[in-house]
Computed example of a mutant assay.
Amino acid sequence: MTRTCPHAPPAEHRRLRAEAPVARVKLPNGLTVWAVTAHEHIRTILSDPRFSSNRRDPGFPYLTRERPPSSDLKRMLLELDPPEHGQARRSVLGEFTLQRIRALGPRIQQIVDEHIDAMLAGPRPVDLVQAFSLPVPSLVICELLGVPYADHEFFQTRSATLVNQNAAPEEVGRVVGELMTYLGNLVAAKAQNPTDDLLGRQIARQRESGEVDYQDLVSMAFLLLIAGHETTANMISLTTLVLLQQPDKLAALQRAPAKTLAAVEELLRYFTIAEQALGRVAIADVEIGGVLIRAGEGVLLLANTGNRDPEVFTDADELDLERGSRNHLAFGFGPHQCLGQNLARLELQIVIDTLFRRIPGLRPAVPEDELSFKVDATVYGIREFPVTW
């Protein structure tokens, strides 16, 4: 469905929430699934074990033109169901505790400042996406995982293919193979020469408990590397755009930096960039909102529309930076809620507190209608964002 406003879900999605919050719809690829648009129903499904995350199930809703090819690769964390999911998640959960993430704050601040320095020293206008939004979270996740940042262009170009709904299946298969080969070689090298980073610590942990599962580590690295930069990069660009468009709100926020964390929650709710990335398949007959979803049927959860639900959020279409509500769906909900949410929050907080302070005259170099938004991707954002000051 086409957006009429880059800051809001398509009107048809909003109509579904109002008239038929659990409705049968046909996707562009011809697949018929259930679309769920109400906040309450989305949370219910995401916490109900009768809905599976197994993307290899024939009924799982896919958004690409053709069904992704089958793979012999080990299923990633986001594809697992209990009890395997709980075991796999616990193994890495300690890397993303609030205490450990807060310890990264000084390094994230340094990375943000260094990229702002480079912007200020270079010519104008500058593409914020390439100069700032992409490299900042890319460098952070590379350092966290232990991936050489020198290879960032390699995985950035390939991750762009993976989130493009129009990418040909053979192209997606090639990209996945290239990334898995790269990460497999990286994990093997770290097994030979241990490093003090997430992958190195996971290798050490597995050795203590038994044999190193190389495929498990490669799958985990694949998920964290792609999710860890693509999502935050898009949020940085969109956040910058909307705050520059609402200078009164930006000024109020700058006068009270203690409110930045609340603003981050609201910005996450407002944009919900992984708007159509939440899919499930029923493994039993389940009634949701008075509608019977039968075993084997796919369910697409439109979190962006759920996050604009007027039953949950007052003036849901308004950006209220003091709302501070954390019951949004931007990180999902339930057992599969985003592992890296604390890291994303911290990165956005540091970016907001630093970017506008250090470049007080920052402004878009082109009108919004000249920007190219990622309407064909499962992660929403801006492709290029020229700015000046």
Rank of each mutant, 00 (worst) to 15 (best):
E322K: 12
R269K: 07
D72I: 07
P367Q: 02
H39P: 10
R345G: 09
R345F: 10
G173Y: 03
P61R: 01
R201W: 01
R124D: 14
N193F: 13
H85M: 08
L199Y: 02
L144Q: 15
L362T: 11
V187I: 04
R205I: 07
G146V: 10
P82I: 11
E40K: 08
H115R: 13
R158W: 04
N29S: 03
R124E: 15
G298T: 08
A188C: 03
T2V: 06
D81G: 06
P194V: 00
G94M: 07
R363K: 09
S372I: 10
I42V: 09
N193A: 11
R75C: 13
E368R: 15
R67A: 02
P68V: 02
F385Y: 11
D369M: 05
G146K: 05
V176F: 05
Q206T: 00
E318C: 13
E84Y: 11
Q202P: 01
R67H: 03
D72Q: 14
D72K: 15
N304D: 13
H152C: 13
D376E: 13
F96K: 06
E153P: 11
L31D: 07
G30I: 07
P106N: 06
L46G: 03
G334L: 00
Q192C: 11
G122M: 12
V140D: 09
F154M: 14
Y270L: 09
A23T: 08
R383I: 10
F356T: 04
V312A: 12
Q246G: 07
E171C: 06
E114G: 15
R269E: 10
G173F: 04
Q156F: 15
A252K: 02
V351T: 08
V375L: 13
H229R: 00
E368C: 10
G289V: 03
A330I: 06
L186K: 02
L300F: 03
V22L: 05
L250T: 02
L128V: 09
D57A: 12
S325V: 15
V25H: 09
S52M: 06
V147I: 12
A344D: 09
L261F: 04
T354L: 08
D213I: 00
V366M: 06
R43N: 07
P135C: 08
R43I: 02
F96W: 07
